[in-house]
Design a binder for these strands. Structure first.
Lengths: 96, 96
DNA sequence: CTAGAAATTACCGTAAACGGTAAGGCATCT
DNA sequence: AGATGCCTTACCGTTTACGGTAATTTCTAG
């Protein structure tokens, strides 16, 4: 499946990683050594073709000297999540 | 390895998920249905015993109506990442 | 055009996430 | 006592991330 919003999230995260890496003047192999990730794997991640694990993402962020959150920045940015979100609002009707 | 900072990161993320879920008055099974994750899997994630994938984390965040970054908040919180981080500072000496 | 560096893609193993189900606690009820 | 709800743990099978290597492409010099 990898639905659709999933693919976009992976693409965005990959783009941020690449942008940062290039900005630091690093090659894929250099970042691979710094993060301990492996060149080809990093390539897949940067091109959004791999559903990276959390600890893997953390190692990349550390190698880039970035806080983990800097690589995410809220999916598509569609959610208004900046609000109180309130207490109620779930629709578990058909589920229960 | 799953070193050590990795374990702590997973633990912290899991705690944030659980805190939020409880605050919303949801059970594991209810969140499982909302996120499409599976109860036992969610339990492992909340207890920091599973290295969750990025899209999985995104689905959980969406189900909790939270921005993805809200579940991370920088590893141990040790990094002062709020700074410019400068341009240079890598030690690829022995690597190249 | 040739050489070289950098990135992508394609394999192969191994490890681990995930879905599903079932079983095991551990409280709180009647 | 039993029953019920919630969570945890233990399986199993399938999928997939990851390391490693090699092949392929692409770009950029010279």
């Amino acid at each position: 499946m990898t639905s659709e919003p999933d693919a976009q999230l992976l693409t965005e995260v990959g783009q941020r990683i690449r942008a940062r890496r290039v900005a630091e003047g690093l090659t894929l192999d250099q970042l691979a050594r710094l993060s301990g990730i492996n060149g080809p794997a990093l390539s897949l991640i940067e091109t959004g073709k791999r559903d990276v694990r959390l600890t893997t993402l953390a190692r990349i962020a550390a190698a880039l000297r970035l806080p983990l959150e800097a690589l995410l920045a809220a999916g598509t940015g569609d959610r208004e999540a900046g609000s109180p979100i309130a207490g109620e609002g779930y629709d578990l009707k058909g589920f229960l």
